[in-house]
Amino acid sequence: MEVRTIKVFTTVDNINLHTQVVDMSMTYGQQFGPTYLDGADVTKIKPHNSHEGKTFYVLPNDDTLRVEAFEYYHTTDPSFLGRYMSALNHTKKWKYPQVNGLTSIKWADNNCYLATALLTLQQIELKFNPPALQDAYYRARAGEAANFCALILAYCNKTVGELGDVRETMSYLFQHANLDSCKRVLNVVCKTCGQQQTTLKGVEAVMYMGTLSYEQFKKGVQIPCTCGKQATKYLVQQESPFVMMSAPPAQYELKHGTFTCASEYTGNYQCGHYKHITSKETLYCIDGALLTKSSEYKGPITDVFYKENSYTTTIK
């Protein structure tokens, strides 16, 4: 009895394709271990004539594949690729409408935090270190965002349907971005203890939790000093293409032309909904596939993004 075979390709990165001759009487799992086709788990399936010449994702289970996976995804987590594939199996079914010149995501599976993050990423200057993220990001900007969303979920250790947080998501993504040249110098002034300067680099240099107003941050924000008295913390120097200011959701007025974009969060910790506000020729609110415009805006804002380049204080 002759062994019926077909020729397929296996890959971990969709760049390096490895030619395989597979036995049609055995499952993919018996031949390769966990195997995925377009995100779908085909591990328990036997090869079919229609699979001839198709590319299958496999887990990096030998040295060659491990090197290829690390170079593309910059992670050695053995569960990463499987999590990416199972997320992709959902995100490829989502709709990605162009809204006001940006790629958004039609609401499904509690994905409003991903839509808000995706919209924000198209408006701030950011370059990702893992080629996987950078490639998928370019495709997302062009309207094909399924891979990018699935990668975000995998890097953030999230599953489809789980509630997510924009600030946490951005923080994970910033860790995989090139923020080497970003720098922030802060000064804390206390009447009792004097003053202390701190220099922050990388992710810490672009994120701040405690106030939404970048102007206020430049002037000074009140913080408790270690001595128990009130101290003032203010920005001395900022070198970065953008800054992200966050605070627990509270009524906040966004003035046209003073910011790049913002995240609105309605609801409580267990259950809520994100919308995205962007400042173009007027203010726009993007909620999944829905767009509304207004000249002014007041609502429960939790993150505001500002364009920056270089700032030095005039406070002496």
Score class of each variant (00 low, 15 high):
G257Q: 01
Q197A: 08
S181T: 12
P97V: 12
E68R: 09
T260Q: 05
Y57E: 04
R66M: 15
S79A: 14
L212A: 08
V185E: 06
D109W: 05
G228V: 01
L200V: 10
D23Y: 10
I105R: 06
L17F: 12
N89L: 12
T199I: 13
A231I: 03
W94C: 04
N178V: 04
Y214L: 09
E52T: 12
Q30D: 14
A177P: 01
Y269C: 07
L179S: 05
N16G: 10
A87K: 02
V160N: 05
A250T: 15
L59G: 08
R141Y: 09
F70K: 15
D13N: 05
T103W: 12
L173Y: 04
Y284P: 01
G161A: 03
H273F: 02
N129V: 09
V8T: 10
G288Q: 01
T232K: 07
L235G: 00
N110W: 08
L153D: 02
L186E: 15
L126Q: 05
S279W: 01
F9Y: 13
Y137E: 00
V243W: 00
T278S: 14
L291M: 14
P130A: 10
N61W: 12
G194L: 02
K95N: 15
R83E: 05
P249E: 08
Y172N: 13
Q238W: 05
R66D: 09
L200E: 09
Y311W: 14
F217N: 02
Y96P: 08
T313P: 10
P248A: 09
L119T: 02
G101W: 09
E162W: 05
F305S: 00
G29R: 04
Y84Q: 02
Y284F: 09
N268S: 15
L119G: 01
K191I: 10
D165A: 05
C225N: 02
C285V: 15
G29E: 12
S181I: 07
G288N: 07
L119W: 04
N187G: 08
I152L: 07
G267M: 00
C193P: 06
A69C: 12
T43Q: 10
G288R: 01
T313K: 14
M26G: 07
G143C: 04
P241S: 07
T278F: 07
H51V: 05
D303F: 00
R167Q: 06
Q230Y: 15
G29H: 10
Q230A: 09
C190I: 03
V21I: 15
I277P: 10
T75A: 09
A69V: 10
S295F: 10
Q222H: 11
G29M: 12
I152W: 00
A40E: 15
T199G: 00
Q30V: 11
N110K: 04
A136Y: 09
L153G: 04
V8W: 00
T75E: 06
R184I: 04
I315M: 15
A132I: 11
K229I: 08
M244W: 02
C271K: 14
D77C: 09
Y28P: 04
M209H: 12
R83S: 07
S104V: 08
E239W: 04
L200H: 07
K275E: 05
T76I: 10
R141V: 12
E144I: 05
S25T: 15
A87P: 07
L173C: 04
C193G: 08
K298W: 10
E264W: 02
P300L: 10
L59V: 10
T312L: 13
E144G: 07
H176V: 05
T64R: 12
F56L: 12
E125P: 12
V236P: 03
D13L: 07
K92S: 11
K219A: 12
G39W: 06
C261T: 00
H276G: 01
K229Q: 15
H273Y: 01
T159F: 08
F259K: 02
A108L: 07
V160T: 02
D38A: 13
N178P: 02
V236C: 07
I6A: 13
E281C: 08
R167D: 01
N157G: 11
